[in-house]
Amino acid sequence: FSITQFVRNLGLEHLMDIFEREQITLRVLVEMGHKELKEIGINAYGHREKLIKGVERLI
């Protein structure tokens, strides 16, 4: 299971460039909250919320 699959499953594949540029893996994403996601350029609250909720389902 990769970050690419995870992001695609959430319908947020347009954010993949950010994850690749910042070298974010699923392991790193698990540790990130709204503040960190915003810092790397994910400005939409809804997108950040989707990512965080998606990660919570993985754990």
Rank of each mutant, 00 (worst) to 15 (best):
Phe1Trp: 09
Phe1Cys: 15
Phe1Asp: 12
Phe1Ala: 10
Phe1Ser: 11
Ser2Tyr: 08
Ser2Asp: 15
Ser2Arg: 07
Ser2Gln: 10
Ile3Arg: 01
Thr4Gly: 13
Thr4Leu: 15
Thr4Ile: 12
Gln5Trp: 08
Gln5Ile: 10
Gln5Val: 12
Gln5Ala: 11
Phe6Ser: 00
Phe6Trp: 06
Phe6Lys: 00
Phe6Gln: 00
Val7Leu: 15
Val7Tyr: 02
Val7Trp: 02
Arg8Gln: 12
Arg8Ala: 14
Arg8Leu: 10
Asn9Leu: 14
Leu10Gly: 02
Gly11Gln: 07
Gly11Arg: 07
Gly11Ser: 05
Leu12Asn: 01
Leu12Tyr: 02
Glu13Gln: 11
Glu13Ile: 10
His14Gly: 08
His14Leu: 11
Leu15Gly: 00
Leu15Tyr: 09
Leu15Cys: 05
Met16Lys: 08
Met16Trp: 07
Met16Thr: 10
Asp17Ile: 13
Ile18Ala: 04
Ile18Leu: 08
Phe19Ala: 00
Phe19Gly: 00
Phe19Leu: 07
Glu20Ala: 11
Glu20Asn: 11
Glu20Leu: 13
Arg21His: 07
Glu22Asp: 06
Gln23Ser: 12
Gln23Ile: 05
Ile24Ser: 01
Thr25Ser: 11
Thr25Trp: 03
Thr25Gln: 06
Leu26Tyr: 06
Leu26Arg: 02
Arg27Ala: 14
Arg27Lys: 14
Arg27Tyr: 09
Val28Asn: 12
Val28Gln: 14
Val28Gly: 11
Val28Trp: 08
Leu29Phe: 03
Leu29Met: 06
Leu29Val: 04
Val30Gln: 12
Val30Gly: 09
Glu31Ile: 10
Glu31Lys: 15
Glu31Phe: 10
Glu31Leu: 12
Glu31Ser: 15
Glu31Cys: 14
Met32Ala: 04
Met32Asp: 00
Gly33Ala: 04
Gly33Arg: 07
His34Trp: 04
His34Ser: 03
Lys35Tyr: 07
Lys35Gly: 06
Glu36Asn: 03
Glu36Met: 06
Glu36Trp: 06
Glu36Ser: 05
Glu36Thr: 05
Glu36His: 05
Leu37Phe: 07
Leu37Val: 01
Leu37His: 02
Leu37Pro: 00
Lys38Gly: 05
Lys38Phe: 09
Lys38Cys: 09
Lys38Ser: 09
Lys38Leu: 14
Glu39Thr: 08
Ile40Pro: 00
Ile40Arg: 04
Ile40Thr: 02
Ile40Tyr: 04
Ile40Phe: 04
Ile42Gln: 02
Ile42Met: 04
Ile42Glu: 02
Asn43Met: 12
Asn43Leu: 13
Ala44His: 15
Ala44Lys: 13
Ala44Ser: 14
Ala44Thr: 11
Tyr45Asp: 09
Tyr45His: 14
Gly46Thr: 13
Gly46Phe: 12
Gly46Ser: 14
Gly46Cys: 15
Gly46Met: 13
Gly46His: 13
His47Asp: 15
Arg48Tyr: 05
Glu49Trp: 07
Glu49Ser: 09
Lys50Pro: 01
Lys50Asn: 05
Leu51Asp: 00
Leu51Arg: 00
Leu51Glu: 00
Leu51His: 01
Leu51Pro: 01
Leu51Tyr: 00
Ile52Lys: 04
Ile52Trp: 03
Lys53Phe: 06
Lys53Arg: 13
Gly54Lys: 04
Val55Asp: 01
Val55Gly: 06
Val55Ala: 12
Glu56Asp: 08
Glu56Arg: 13
Arg57His: 11
Arg57Met: 13
Arg57Tyr: 09
Arg57Thr: 10
Leu58Ser: 04
Leu58Gly: 02
Leu58Ile: 08
Leu58Asp: 03
Ile59Pro: 06
Ile59His: 09
Ile59Asn: 10
